[in-house]
Structures are given as structure tokens and as C-alpha cells.
Amino acid sequence: MDKKVTAIIDKYDADRGQLISMLQDIQAEFHYLPREALIQVSETMGIPLSKVYSVATFFKAFSLKPRGRHLINVCLGTACHVRGASKVLEQIERSLDISRGETTNDFKFTLETVNCMGCCALGPVVNIDGEYFGQISAGKVDSILNKYS
């Protein structure tokens, strides 16, 4: 049994109502939801594995696949959309040669989209590892990606 997962479950007193919070903490720890961790949560909490799996696949924030070192989130909220967010997304997809939801072969980047980050006044917005980039255009994409190693 993984001690990190045990500690996370303990932190929430194994409260069923905090399942989503636990999964979030596990994901923060491992950058994805490892299979063994889901099994451990199921066994420790006495929740059928199928239910844990159901929750892990329902919410967009969770990933069951290992993710890259840098997580790119492209906002596709309405305000970003009317200002050309899809062009930005397409350019990132071309530059990294992956589609949304995928990770580059070298595990450098994972590309995801989010339906609004609440920075609507500055759309299009891209968030990389928690850092916001506002008023992006397709033309600015490469110079931003080049900052990351």
C-alpha cells in the first residue's frame, strides 16, 4: 500500500463525501490517477472499485494516463472563443504535433482544454503549469512554448 495515498485518505478521515477531494490530492501528488491508487482508495474506503472508477472518469480534471512535465490548458470559454481561442489551440496542436488530451512522446507537454478559467477579460487565455498567458494569438504560441524545457 502506498503511504502517500494512505496519508491523503487519512487527511479526509476516510469521509466518502470527500472522495473527489482525495482524488484531486492524489492527482496533485502523482500528476495522474495511478490504477493502484484507485484500487487502494476503493479498498480502504469500502467503496466498490467501479464507483471510484466512475467518478475518476466522469470529471474532466482527472487523468488516468500519466501526464507530461508541463500541463498546458487552453481556455475555450465563450469570451476566449469569440476572440479566436480555437486558432490558438490548433497552433499548439500543430507545434507539438499532438491533439487535445494528448501528451508529447517525450512527456514534455500535455495539452488539455478547459471551458473557462475565469480570465474572460483577457481572452484568449492559455495556462501553463498554473501560469496565465493572456491575450494570446496563434502567432505568439511558439515563443511561449519555447520558454519551457
Binding site: G17, Q18, I20, S21, L23, Q24, V55, F58, F59, K60, A61, F62, V114, N115
Partner: peptide, 8 residues
């Protein structure tokens, strides 16, 4: 506090 999981 409870955090959502990314679902409108």
C-alpha cells in the same frame, strides 16, 4: 470547502 472536479 469542497472542490469540484471540472464539470459544468
Amino acid at each position: 470547502i469542497n472542490r469540484g472536479g471540472g464539470a459544468f
